[in-house]
Protein backbone atom coordinates (compact mmCIF):
# COMPACT_ATOMS: atom_id res chain seq x y z
CA UNK A 1 0.00 0.00 0.00
CA UNK A 2 1.19 3.47 -0.90
CA UNK A 3 2.11 5.71 2.04
CA UNK A 4 -0.08 8.79 2.23
CA UNK A 5 1.08 11.76 4.33
CA UNK A 6 -1.16 12.62 7.26
CA UNK A 7 -1.51 12.39 11.03
CA UNK A 8 -2.81 8.79 11.10
CA UNK A 9 -1.28 5.41 10.64
CA UNK A 10 -2.37 4.11 7.28
CA UNK A 11 -3.56 0.73 8.62
CA UNK A 12 -5.53 2.43 11.41
CA UNK A 13 -7.45 4.48 8.85
CA UNK A 14 -8.62 1.30 7.12
CA UNK A 15 -10.19 0.13 10.41
CA UNK A 16 -11.19 3.59 11.55
CA UNK A 17 -9.89 6.13 14.06
CA UNK A 18 -11.87 8.09 16.63
CA UNK A 19 -11.57 11.75 17.61
CA UNK A 20 -13.47 13.46 20.41
CA UNK A 21 -15.32 16.66 19.45
CA UNK A 22 -18.30 18.79 20.33
CA UNK A 23 -21.16 18.72 17.84
CA UNK A 24 -22.64 22.21 17.45
CA UNK A 25 -25.33 21.48 14.86
CA UNK A 26 -26.15 20.99 11.21
CA UNK A 27 -27.56 23.02 8.36
CA UNK A 28 -28.27 22.46 4.69
CA UNK A 29 -27.06 24.35 1.63
CA UNK A 30 -27.76 23.99 -2.07
CA UNK A 31 -24.65 23.82 -4.22
CA UNK A 32 -23.35 23.37 -7.75
CA UNK A 33 -21.77 19.99 -8.48
CA UNK A 34 -18.11 20.95 -8.20
CA UNK A 35 -18.00 24.50 -6.88
CA UNK A 36 -14.77 26.53 -7.10
CA UNK A 37 -12.66 26.87 -3.92
CA UNK A 38 -13.88 30.40 -3.21
CA UNK A 39 -17.50 29.16 -3.20
CA UNK A 40 -16.60 26.28 -0.89
CA UNK A 41 -14.94 28.70 1.50
CA UNK A 42 -18.03 30.90 1.51
CA UNK A 43 -20.24 27.82 2.05
CA UNK A 44 -18.14 26.69 5.01
CA UNK A 45 -18.33 30.14 6.55
CA UNK A 46 -22.06 30.33 5.90
CA UNK A 47 -22.61 26.95 7.60
CA UNK A 48 -20.51 28.01 10.59
CA UNK A 49 -22.32 31.35 10.92
CA UNK A 50 -25.72 29.65 10.79
CA UNK A 51 -24.90 27.08 13.47
CA UNK A 52 -22.55 28.91 15.78
CA UNK A 53 -24.20 30.99 18.50
CA UNK A 54 -23.17 34.66 18.49
CA UNK A 55 -20.38 35.65 20.87
CA UNK A 56 -21.66 35.98 24.42
CA UNK A 57 -24.60 33.63 23.87
CA UNK A 58 -24.67 30.05 25.11
CA UNK A 59 -23.74 27.54 22.44
CA UNK A 60 -25.70 24.29 22.61
CA UNK A 61 -23.31 21.39 22.03
CA UNK A 62 -23.12 17.63 22.37
CA UNK A 63 -20.02 15.58 23.17
CA UNK A 64 -19.45 13.21 20.27
CA UNK A 65 -16.92 10.79 18.86
CA UNK A 66 -16.00 11.25 15.22
CA UNK A 67 -15.26 7.93 13.60
CA UNK A 68 -13.10 8.33 10.47
CA UNK A 69 -12.20 5.49 8.12
CA UNK A 70 -11.47 5.09 4.43
CA UNK A 71 -15.09 3.92 4.01
CA UNK A 72 -17.19 6.13 6.28
CA UNK A 73 -17.35 9.07 8.65
CA UNK A 74 -19.71 8.52 11.57
CA UNK A 75 -20.78 10.81 14.37
CA UNK A 76 -21.45 8.85 17.58
CA UNK A 77 -22.78 10.19 20.85
CA UNK A 78 -19.88 10.04 23.30
CA UNK A 79 -21.82 8.34 26.11
CA UNK A 80 -24.01 5.74 24.37
CA UNK A 81 -21.96 5.36 21.14
CA UNK A 82 -25.18 5.65 19.18
CA UNK A 83 -24.69 6.72 15.54
CA UNK A 84 -26.16 10.19 15.04
CA UNK A 85 -24.86 10.50 11.48
CA UNK A 86 -23.26 8.02 9.11
CA UNK A 87 -21.90 9.11 5.73
CA UNK A 88 -20.12 6.98 3.14
CA UNK A 89 -16.75 8.64 2.55
CA UNK A 90 -17.40 9.16 -1.16
CA UNK A 91 -20.47 11.27 -0.37
CA UNK A 92 -18.39 13.71 1.67
CA UNK A 93 -17.72 16.57 -0.67
CA UNK A 94 -15.12 18.39 1.41
CA UNK A 95 -14.19 19.47 4.90
CA UNK A 96 -13.14 22.84 6.24
CA UNK A 97 -11.31 23.83 9.37
CA UNK A 98 -11.51 27.36 10.67
CA UNK A 99 -9.59 27.76 13.91
CA UNK A 100 -11.20 25.33 16.34
CA UNK A 101 -14.26 24.77 14.12
CA UNK A 102 -14.60 21.83 11.76
CA UNK A 103 -17.27 21.80 9.02
CA UNK A 104 -18.08 18.55 7.25
CA UNK A 105 -19.93 18.80 3.95
CA UNK A 106 -21.90 15.70 2.92
CA UNK A 107 -23.75 15.55 -0.37
CA UNK A 108 -27.35 14.49 0.14
CA UNK A 109 -29.01 14.09 -3.21
CA UNK A 110 -29.74 16.00 -6.35
CA UNK A 111 -32.26 18.74 -6.41
CA UNK A 112 -33.50 20.45 -9.55
CA UNK A 113 -33.75 24.13 -10.06
CA UNK A 114 -37.34 25.38 -10.32
CA UNK A 115 -38.77 24.95 -13.82
CA UNK A 116 -39.05 28.72 -14.05
CA UNK A 117 -35.28 28.92 -14.45
CA UNK A 118 -33.96 28.70 -17.98
CA UNK A 119 -31.68 25.67 -17.64
CA UNK A 120 -32.54 22.61 -15.68
CA UNK A 121 -29.15 22.74 -14.03
CA UNK A 122 -28.58 20.10 -11.40
CA UNK A 123 -27.83 21.17 -7.90
CA UNK A 124 -26.74 19.24 -4.86
CA UNK A 125 -28.11 19.57 -1.41
CA UNK A 126 -25.27 19.46 1.02
CA UNK A 127 -25.60 18.71 4.69
CA UNK A 128 -23.16 20.72 6.74
CA UNK A 129 -22.24 19.41 10.17
CA UNK A 130 -20.39 21.83 12.43
CA UNK A 131 -18.08 20.71 15.24
CA UNK A 132 -15.82 22.33 17.77
CA UNK A 133 -12.48 20.82 18.72
CA UNK A 134 -9.04 22.15 19.63
CA UNK A 135 -7.85 19.47 17.18
CA UNK A 136 -10.08 20.68 14.31
CA UNK A 137 -7.07 20.96 11.99
CA UNK A 138 -5.79 17.50 12.93
CA UNK A 139 -9.22 15.91 12.38
CA UNK A 140 -9.50 17.68 9.01
CA UNK A 141 -6.06 16.36 8.07
CA UNK A 142 -7.07 12.84 9.12
CA UNK A 143 -10.23 12.99 6.98
CA UNK A 144 -8.12 14.40 4.14
CA UNK A 145 -5.75 11.47 4.55
CA UNK A 146 -8.71 9.05 4.44
CA UNK A 147 -9.84 10.78 1.19
CA UNK A 148 -6.42 10.24 -0.35
CA UNK A 149 -6.10 6.60 0.78
CA UNK A 150 -9.62 5.79 -0.51
CA UNK A 151 -8.92 7.62 -3.76
CA UNK A 152 -5.66 5.73 -4.29
CA UNK A 153 -7.54 2.46 -3.77
CA UNK A 154 -10.23 3.54 -6.22
CA UNK A 155 -7.61 4.43 -8.85
CA UNK A 156 -5.78 1.15 -8.35
CA UNK A 157 -9.06 -0.75 -8.75
CA UNK A 158 -9.67 1.23 -11.95
CA UNK A 159 -6.23 0.24 -13.27
CA UNK A 160 -4.62 3.67 -12.82
CA UNK A 161 -1.26 4.15 -11.12
CA UNK A 162 -1.98 6.52 -8.19
CA UNK A 163 1.62 7.77 -8.26
CA UNK A 164 1.13 9.24 -11.71
CA UNK A 165 -2.08 10.97 -10.68
CA UNK A 166 -0.29 12.23 -7.57
CA UNK A 167 2.37 13.90 -9.71
CA UNK A 168 -0.28 15.77 -11.67
CA UNK A 169 -2.04 16.79 -8.50
CA UNK A 170 1.10 18.18 -6.95
CA UNK A 171 1.43 20.43 -9.98
CA UNK A 172 -1.95 21.78 -9.07
CA UNK A 173 -3.88 20.29 -11.98
CA UNK A 174 -6.63 18.73 -9.89
CA UNK A 175 -7.16 16.60 -6.88
CA UNK A 176 -7.25 17.02 -3.14
CA UNK A 177 -6.70 20.73 -3.02
CA UNK A 178 -5.76 22.34 0.23
CA UNK A 179 -6.75 25.95 0.08
CA UNK A 180 -5.33 28.07 2.81
CA UNK A 181 -5.92 31.71 2.65
CA UNK A 182 -6.83 34.18 5.34
CA UNK A 183 -7.90 36.83 2.81
CA UNK A 184 -11.48 35.65 2.47
CA UNK A 185 -11.91 35.78 6.24
CA UNK A 186 -10.38 39.22 6.34
CA UNK A 187 -12.43 40.60 3.44
CA UNK A 188 -15.70 39.13 4.67
CA UNK A 189 -15.28 40.49 8.18
CA UNK A 190 -17.44 43.61 8.22
CA UNK A 191 -15.23 45.12 10.94
CA UNK A 192 -12.49 45.55 8.33
CA UNK A 193 -14.80 47.29 5.84
CA UNK A 194 -15.34 51.02 6.30
CA UNK A 195 -16.92 54.00 4.65
CA UNK A 196 -14.63 57.02 4.96
CA UNK A 197 -15.82 60.57 4.26
CA UNK A 198 -13.04 62.92 3.30
CA UNK A 199 -13.49 66.68 3.32
CA UNK A 200 -11.31 68.71 1.00
CA UNK A 201 -11.11 71.94 -0.89
CA UNK A 202 -12.55 72.13 -4.39
CA UNK A 203 -9.80 71.34 -6.91
CA UNK A 204 -7.60 69.68 -4.30
CA UNK A 205 -6.48 66.08 -4.92
CA UNK A 206 -7.19 63.37 -2.34
CA UNK A 207 -3.47 62.86 -1.75
CA UNK A 208 -3.28 59.12 -2.31
CA UNK A 209 -0.91 57.01 -4.45
CA UNK A 210 -2.46 53.79 -5.76
CA UNK A 211 -1.02 50.45 -6.88
CA UNK A 212 -2.61 47.23 -8.15
CA UNK A 213 -3.55 44.45 -5.72
CA UNK A 214 -1.80 41.98 -8.05
CA UNK A 215 -2.89 38.93 -10.02
CA UNK A 216 -3.85 36.15 -7.65
CA UNK A 217 -5.54 38.55 -5.26
CA UNK A 218 -8.99 37.45 -4.12
CA UNK A 219 -10.14 41.06 -4.29
CA UNK A 220 -8.75 42.70 -7.41
CA UNK A 221 -8.81 46.42 -6.75
CA UNK A 222 -6.56 49.41 -6.07
CA UNK A 223 -4.39 49.45 -2.95
CA UNK A 224 -3.28 52.62 -1.15
CA UNK A 225 0.51 52.72 -1.54
CA UNK A 226 1.19 56.10 0.01
CA UNK A 227 -0.52 59.14 1.51
CA UNK A 228 0.52 62.73 0.77
CA UNK A 229 1.78 64.32 3.97
CA UNK A 230 -0.81 66.89 5.04
CA UNK A 231 -3.16 65.91 2.20
CA UNK A 232 -6.92 65.37 2.68
CA UNK A 233 -6.61 61.58 2.88
CA UNK A 234 -3.91 61.72 5.55
CA UNK A 235 -5.75 64.48 7.47
CA UNK A 236 -8.84 62.25 7.72
CA UNK A 237 -6.77 59.84 9.81
CA UNK A 238 -8.95 57.00 8.52
CA UNK A 239 -6.71 55.59 5.79
CA UNK A 240 -3.45 53.72 5.94
CA UNK A 241 -0.99 52.17 3.52
CA UNK A 242 -2.19 48.75 2.36
CA UNK A 243 -5.92 49.57 2.54
CA UNK A 244 -7.97 48.29 -0.40
CA UNK A 245 -10.06 50.92 -2.13
CA UNK A 246 -13.28 49.18 -3.24
CA UNK A 247 -15.52 52.14 -4.16
CA UNK A 248 -15.49 55.88 -4.55
CA UNK A 249 -18.74 57.82 -4.03
CA UNK A 250 -20.60 54.51 -4.30
CA UNK A 251 -19.01 53.48 -7.64
CA UNK A 252 -17.24 50.15 -7.35
CA UNK A 253 -13.58 49.95 -8.36
CA UNK A 254 -13.37 46.16 -7.96
CA UNK A 255 -12.04 44.44 -11.09
CA UNK A 256 -11.11 47.72 -12.82
CA UNK A 257 -7.63 48.41 -14.15
CA UNK A 258 -5.29 50.59 -12.11
CA UNK A 259 -5.61 53.35 -14.74
CA UNK A 260 -9.42 53.26 -14.40
CA UNK A 261 -9.19 53.42 -10.59
CA UNK A 262 -6.78 56.36 -10.83
CA UNK A 263 -9.11 58.12 -13.28
CA UNK A 264 -12.04 57.63 -10.87
CA UNK A 265 -10.02 59.26 -8.08
CA UNK A 266 -8.99 62.17 -10.33
CA UNK A 267 -12.63 62.72 -11.26
CA UNK A 268 -13.59 63.71 -7.71
CA UNK A 269 -11.05 66.55 -7.63
CA UNK A 270 -13.81 69.15 -8.10
CA UNK A 271 -15.82 67.86 -5.15
CA UNK A 272 -15.56 68.95 -1.51
CA UNK A 273 -16.77 65.73 0.09
CA UNK A 274 -15.68 62.29 -1.11
CA UNK A 275 -16.85 58.93 0.25
CA UNK A 276 -14.42 56.04 -0.03
CA UNK A 277 -15.25 52.40 0.71
CA UNK A 278 -12.15 50.69 2.01
CA UNK A 279 -11.09 47.40 3.51
CA UNK A 280 -8.43 47.96 6.09
CA UNK A 281 -5.44 45.70 5.34
CA UNK A 282 -1.89 45.70 6.69
CA UNK A 283 0.73 46.80 4.14
CA UNK A 284 2.48 43.43 4.45
CA UNK A 285 0.49 40.24 3.81
CA UNK A 286 1.46 36.68 4.64
CA UNK A 287 0.96 33.75 2.30
CA UNK A 288 1.11 30.30 3.86
CA UNK A 289 2.08 27.54 1.46
CA UNK A 290 1.57 23.94 2.46
CA UNK A 291 4.37 21.96 0.84
CA UNK A 292 4.80 18.47 2.29
CA UNK A 293 8.00 17.71 0.30
CA UNK A 294 10.71 19.81 -1.30
CA UNK A 295 10.15 17.81 -4.51
CA UNK A 296 6.74 19.44 -4.80
CA UNK A 297 6.79 22.46 -7.10
CA UNK A 298 6.09 25.75 -5.28
CA UNK A 299 4.24 27.08 -8.30
CA UNK A 300 5.65 30.57 -8.72
CA UNK A 301 8.64 32.35 -10.26
CA UNK A 302 10.74 34.98 -8.55
CA UNK A 303 13.01 37.56 -10.10
CA UNK A 304 15.11 39.71 -7.76
CA UNK A 305 12.70 39.06 -4.92
CA UNK A 306 9.59 39.93 -6.92
CA UNK A 307 6.97 37.32 -7.77
CA UNK A 308 6.67 37.47 -11.54
CA UNK A 309 4.41 34.52 -12.38
CA UNK A 310 2.12 32.08 -10.65
CA UNK A 311 0.94 28.58 -11.58
CA UNK A 312 -2.86 28.60 -11.74
CA UNK A 313 -4.25 26.33 -9.00
CA UNK A 314 -0.78 25.60 -7.61
CA UNK A 315 0.07 25.49 -3.92
CA UNK A 316 1.42 29.06 -4.03
CA UNK A 317 -1.74 30.51 -5.54
CA UNK A 318 -3.83 28.57 -3.04
CA UNK A 319 -1.64 29.92 -0.27
CA UNK A 320 -2.22 33.54 -1.29
CA UNK A 321 0.98 34.36 -3.20
CA UNK A 322 0.48 37.27 -5.63
CA UNK A 323 2.15 38.44 -8.80
CA UNK A 324 3.88 41.81 -8.56
CA UNK A 325 4.62 41.47 -4.85
CA UNK A 326 8.06 41.74 -3.33
CA UNK A 327 9.02 39.04 -0.86
CA UNK A 328 9.96 40.61 2.48
CA UNK A 329 10.43 37.51 4.62
CA UNK A 330 10.63 33.74 4.13
CA UNK A 331 9.88 31.73 7.27
CA UNK A 332 10.90 34.66 9.49
CA UNK A 333 14.14 35.46 7.60
CA UNK A 334 14.26 38.94 6.11
CA UNK A 335 15.19 38.81 2.42
CA UNK A 336 14.97 42.52 1.54
CA UNK A 337 18.73 42.86 0.98
CA UNK A 338 19.31 39.24 -0.02
CA UNK A 339 20.80 38.26 -3.40
CA UNK A 340 18.49 36.47 -5.84
CA UNK A 341 20.41 33.18 -5.63
CA UNK A 342 20.01 33.04 -1.84
CA UNK A 343 16.25 33.75 -2.08
CA UNK A 344 15.91 30.87 -4.53
CA UNK A 345 17.93 28.68 -2.16
CA UNK A 346 15.66 29.57 0.79
CA UNK A 347 12.56 28.83 -1.27
CA UNK A 348 13.92 25.58 -2.67
CA UNK A 349 14.73 24.31 0.81
CA UNK A 350 11.48 25.47 2.44
CA UNK A 351 8.80 22.86 2.99
CA UNK A 352 6.00 21.76 5.35
CA UNK A 353 4.49 25.20 5.98
CA UNK A 354 6.21 28.04 4.13
CA UNK A 355 5.34 31.52 5.44
CA UNK A 356 6.02 34.26 2.92
CA UNK A 357 5.57 37.92 3.88
CA UNK A 358 5.16 40.22 0.91
CA UNK A 359 3.94 43.60 -0.22
CA UNK A 360 3.19 45.11 -3.64
CA UNK A 361 6.56 45.84 -5.27
CA UNK A 362 5.40 49.36 -6.13
CA UNK A 363 4.50 50.06 -2.47
CA UNK A 364 7.93 48.78 -1.46
CA UNK A 365 9.68 51.10 -3.96
CA UNK A 366 7.68 54.08 -2.66
CA UNK A 367 8.34 53.26 0.99
CA UNK A 368 12.07 52.82 0.39
CA UNK A 369 12.35 56.05 -1.66
CA UNK A 370 13.35 54.26 -4.86
CA UNK A 371 10.40 55.85 -6.61
CA UNK A 372 8.53 59.10 -6.17
CA UNK A 373 4.80 58.71 -5.56
CA UNK A 374 2.29 60.20 -7.98
CA UNK A 375 -0.40 61.55 -5.69
CA UNK A 376 -3.93 61.76 -7.00
Amino acid sequence: LQEVPGPCDHEDLLDGVIFGAKYLGSTQLVSERNPPPSTRMAQAREAMDRVKAPDGETQPMTEVDLFVSTKRVKVLTADSQEAMMDHALQTISYIADIGSVLVLMARRRLARRPASQAHSHRLYKILCHVFHSEDAQLIAQAIGQAFTVAYSQFLRESGVDPNQVGAQQSQGAAGPGHLHNGDLDHFSNSENCREVCIEKRRGEGLGVALVESGWGSLLPTAVIANLLHGGPAERSGALSIGDRLTAINGTSLVGLSLAACQAAVREVKSQTLVTLSIIHCPPVTTAIIRRPHTREQLGFCVEDGIICSLLRGGIAERGGVRVGHRIIEINGHSVVATPHARIIELLTEAHTEVHIKMMPAATYRLLTGQEQPVYL
Binding site: N34, T91, I98
Partner: peptide
Protein backbone atom coordinates in the same frame (compact mmCIF):
# COMPACT_ATOMS: atom_id res chain seq x y z
CA UNK B 1 -8.22 32.64 11.74
CA UNK B 2 -7.27 30.85 8.54
CA UNK B 3 -9.72 28.67 6.67
CA UNK B 4 -8.54 25.43 5.10
CA UNK B 5 -10.59 23.43 2.63
CA UNK B 6 -9.83 19.79 1.84
CA UNK B 7 -11.78 18.51 -1.15
CA UNK B 8 -12.55 14.82 -1.57
CA UNK B 9 -10.95 13.80 -4.89
CA UNK B 10 -13.68 11.15 -5.26
CA UNK B 11 -16.16 13.96 -5.75
CA UNK B 12 -15.38 14.39 -9.43
CA UNK B 13 -15.76 10.65 -10.07
CA UNK B 14 -19.16 10.38 -8.46
CA UNK B 15 -21.99 9.73 -10.85
CA UNK B 16 -24.62 12.45 -10.87
CA UNK B 17 -27.56 11.38 -8.82
CA UNK B 18 -25.63 9.45 -6.24
CA UNK B 19 -25.29 10.67 -2.74
CA UNK B 20 -26.48 9.99 0.72
CA UNK B 21 -30.25 10.02 1.08
Amino acid sequence: SALTITVNPMEKHEEPGRGEE
